[in-house]
């Protein structure tokens, strides 16, 4: 009885699925799904090699400090970094006093309350504070940016596939849409004449839908002046800020790598011992 019901139910499911399959196949052949411009012209991120890559990777502190400078002088005007506190910058190799000075001198102050009147006010930040957002709230952020919301950057390198490489590619990927060709040699505007980038957006083949609201943030070489003498080319700045954002998303990366190596060595020895113990106990027993 169970098997009869099962047989009928099985026939039902299989029948419906095969019917759906045939109908789907027919419509797939008769009206193939239109190709989308994103599908044909979106580019995978370029390669980016950072010191923090790989199982033994460590941050390049010099690069993190440069990246921090780019964030502070370029990105921070619009993008918040609200998971990160000023005290965390000690990780970048800054001293306690430097961190204090960074917090105090930050362009945006920390929101607070006027102790006399109770009115909203701002105060200088301390190392214990999180990085204050450049906008009071989302509405203000959108109002100032043509209704586009500059996302928080704290976790950006973990919130996108290929993390740091994505950020690097995006920052250096702005290009002219006219004449843009994909790897197959097709020209975007010839294949998709309607896909012209609307006014107010910027063409960037590394962005998911190819048109990003953010204008090219790294416009010219030498936009920041590095204290360590590194030449601030656009490419260098993009790499540095990507490295910084890899750190901001995963500040415990070094501890993770170091602990991991110790744990793996321990487990390897333990497993080998366990194997010998197992063979020892089973010695002479056929199984």
């Amino acid at each position: 009885m169970v098997r009869l019901i099962a047989f009928l139910a099985g026939l039902g499911f299989v029948g419906i699925l095969l019917y759906s399959l045939i109908m789907g196949a027919v419509s797939f052949v008769s009206e193939p799904p239109a190709k989308t411009v994103e599908h044909e012209f979106h580019l995978h991120p370029k390669e980016l090699h950072l010191a923090s890559d790989g199982p033994l990777g460590k941050f390049d502190r010099q690069q993190l400090q440069r990246g921090f400078q780019v964030y502070k002088e370029v990105c921070a005007a619009c993008h918040s970094l609200h998971q990160v506190a000023f005290r965390d910058f000690k990780d970048l190799g800054f001293s306690e006093a430097e961190v204090k000075a960074i917090a105090k001198g930050w362009a945006t102050e920390t929101p607070s309350v006027n102790p006399e009147t109770g009115e909203p006010a701002t105060r200088k930040s301390t190392p214990a504070d999180k990085i204050p957002s450049p906008y009071a709230n989302e509405v203000a952020a959108r109002a100032a940016n043509n209704n586009a919301l500059p996302p928080d950057l704290s976790l950006m390198s973990k919130a996108r596939h290929d993390g740091g490489a994505y950020i690097y590619s995006l920052l250096t990927g702005y290009t002219d849409q006219a004449g843009f060709k994909n790897h197959a040699g097709q020209e975007l505007l010839k294949e998709f004449p309607d896909a012209k980038t609307p006014d107010g957006l910027h063409f960037n083949p590394y962005f998911a839908n190819l048109n990003i609201a953010m204008p090219p943030p790294l416009a010219a070489d030498g936009q920041v002046t590095y204290a360590d003498g590194t030449v601030a080319t656009k490419d260098q700045m993009a790499k540095d800020v990507s490295a910084f954002l890899v750190w901001s998303a995963e500040p415990k990366l070094e501890a993770r790598h170091q602990t991991g190596v110790a744990v793996m060595i321990f487990l390897l020895i333990a497993t080998v011992l366990a194997w010998f113990s197992y063979r020892n106990i089973w010695a002479g027993i056929k199984h």
């Binding site: 047989f7 026939l11 499911f13 699925l17 399959l21 789907g24 797939f28």
Partner: peptide, 18 residues
């Protein structure tokens, strides 16, 4: 993927029930 999963799902039910 949809067509492949239709075929695969059909086999799944067929395997156990038939």
């Amino acid at each position: 993927y949809v067509m492949i999963s239709q075929l695969a799902a059909a086999y799944y039910f067929a395997h156990f029930l038939i």
